[in-house]
Design a protein around this nucleic acid. Structure first.
Lengths: 355, 355
DNA sequence: GGAGGATATGCTCACACAGAGTATAAGTGC
DNA sequence: GCACTTATACTCTGTGTGAGCATATCCTCC
């Protein structure tokens, strides 16, 4: 299958079996652009053309576009160009996320989506396609634990999980039980903020997100690993709104967004990515609020300060920031040098422990 | 750029600009199949057709192949099918690695490579294309520190780094110095086994790997981030063999392999992936040797046992394994249940600390 | 201008765990 | 029997995390 040559084979070797049957596909680039507004983590959505997904006015979608073979030497350059040209948004961090290529992820022929996580400072975005910042937790309301355990988990998710388990064949019951407990922290397992993609995919299998209906018809926008839909939709639940938890996006875009949230949360612990959404100077409280916004959890304030201090990630500017009420906080600046000083200069939030 | 519809635009929005100028490209699937033979980590290579890369008999390459749109619902299914059909190798773990899409990564037209990390138990492989297990450290001799700091680092790499720094413009000198120290652990920074890809890419920029010559002509198989070649080749060095450190692979395949090694090393700490290359039962010494093989470092034996024990990753079988000389070791078995018990059931080798 | 509230900042304690070393057990070969 | 090799158990110590208490400095309101 060294299909790297012009005349190779269909298989893994140089077996001289005639001309190569290459595989070509549409390739789209999908940036998941994330920022934060005050204490709300946001991501950028656009309106898909109205005829897509059979919804009026055009359903919400992630921005996406095509590589320009002439202009873009690398994939990342392509994403950068798209975001710069079409949205005019200065993005401060890019990272390739995952390549989604399920056959049925788009309705008209196989298209590969190379997704990127992008971080930007919050600013208004204008342009065609109605770009709009949207709270990440509109898409994933079960992910925000800052106000305590979200009600919909006990009201909707847990009952659905229990039905799922109750109708499980005995063979897979232990597996499913442990998966459910681990993913949603229901048993003795603790809620792990990072497993955002796992949770979305399990909710998909449970039929609790709107995309599951369309996806079921299209076979599976479902599990990432191609494990097949093992749950089966449990439609007609106590779901919110129009038939599913949270705001859906077209196709598998919400899955892509979930992957981005998972990656971002995981990165918080060992890479100083938060600073890419913050202004030049900021208070430690602001820093903490932003981390909490992304993590979806409150953190112990004093320990957080100690962490930031010992990590040597920031330096004081000497100035102070006055807010309403309370002692003014000192303003800090990100020490960008640490990127080259230490291997893993993150906020070592091992378990993202909250109070 | 919601190019998800049939009639979209060229940009980030629904601007009605006529029919979509979609982008299509050849997409190949590239599994990096890794295993271990005794204490040697190995990866599977094949022979590319002889005319590729202008080398006799066909240079070594990673296996690769094409998706079959009819057969493969998901990308991972495609990789599984390729490996099963062409190599007949039972692979026990798959994970998408990265998508490589630099314009010049292949000589004849843009081809995207969706790379997968694959883990298998070691067994002979037959088939067309001359599949062959090859030591990972043939490709990356600087990565194996089990016999102490590899000589070629001080003999070849460090001098090249010093020349690189000596010829640096003052503006980028601090950046480069810190990058060099962090990547190769030369300054006060410690060697971080995980940064295998960073090291390969820096060596590429330094012109110390054979691919840099061809890649330089082709603009850049170079840095992953598309940062451009900032170093410039320093040809005519004290390089080994045929003009570069380690055994080269065709195109950017060695970069892909480096990415796989990096991912694998990173995963060791928080996912029990080692067991996928081990037989059903094994001794703790064997387990440690395999981890050491992948990590390229020796580990403190007693602490390793404690780690494995407290992590509850294995259970004794009751049987013992007799080897030549010394007390017989007990045989253990992987407790696959832990995958569902704890969020991150790895061998918490935070810094992969050796003795 | 003093009280009370709010936020920022500093310090301490307990505990878990990683790193490193020492000691003992159970085989082999002579 | 002995020397040698490998496996396994236990101890000690420093670091860093989780949690709580205490103090500082501003605001607003009376």
């Amino acid at each position: 299958m060294p299909a790297t040559g012009r005349t190779g084979s269909t298989g893994s070797t140089g077996r001289p079996a005639g001309p190569v049957t290459r595989f070509s596909a549409t390739v789209e680039l999908v940036p998941v652009i994330i920022s934060v507004d005050q204490t709300t983590p946001k991501l950028l959505t656009v309106r898909s053309p109205a005829h897509i997904a059979g919804q009026g006015r055009g359903a919400a979608a992630l921005p996406s576009g095509y590589l320009d073979d002439a202009l873009d030497r690398t994939l990342e350059q392509g994403v950068r160009r798209l975001v710069a040209n079409e949205l005019g948004l200065p993005v401060r961090y890019f990272e390739q996320l995952y390549t989604f290529g399920n056959r049925d992820r788009a309705p008209d022929g196989r298209a590969l989506a190379v997704a990127y996580l992008a971080l930007a400072r919050y600013q208004p975005v204008h342009g065609p396609g109605e770009p709009e910042w949207r709270s990440c937790y509109d898409l994933f309301p079960w992910e925000d634990w800052r106000g305590g355990r979200p009600r919909l988990i006990d009201d909707v998710v847990v009952p659905a999980l229990e039905r799922w388990l109750a109708t499980s064949p005995a063979g897979v019951l232990p597996t499913r039980t442990e998966r459910a407990e681990l993913t949603f922290g229901t048993g003795q397992a603790r809620w792990d903020p990072v497993r955002a993609l796992d949770r979305y995919e399990l909710l998909y299998e449970l039929g609790l997100v709107a995309e599951a209906a369309a996806g079921g018809k299209r076979e599976a926008g479902g599990p990432r690993q191609g494990a097949g839909v093992t749950g089966g939709a449990l439609a007609g639940d106590g779901l919110e709104g129009l038939g599913g938890l949270g705001v859906p996006l077209v196709f598998d875009h919400r899955r892509i967004a979930a992957a981005a949230l998972e990656r971002l949360r995981g990165k918080l612990a060992y890479r100083p990515v938060v600073f890419e959404v913050l202004p030049e100077t900021f208070t430690l409280s602001t820093l903490q609020q932003v981390v909490e916004a992304f993590a979806g959890q409150h953190l112990h304030k004093q320990n957080f300060r100690r962490l930031v201090a010992t990590a040597n990630l920031v330096e004081p500017t000497g100035e102070a920031h006055v807010r309403t009420g309370g002692r003014p906080a000192e303003l800090y600046r990100f020490r960008r040098e640490v990127l080259r000083e230490r291997p893993a200069p993150g906020l070592g939030l091992r378990r993202l422990g909250g109070p």
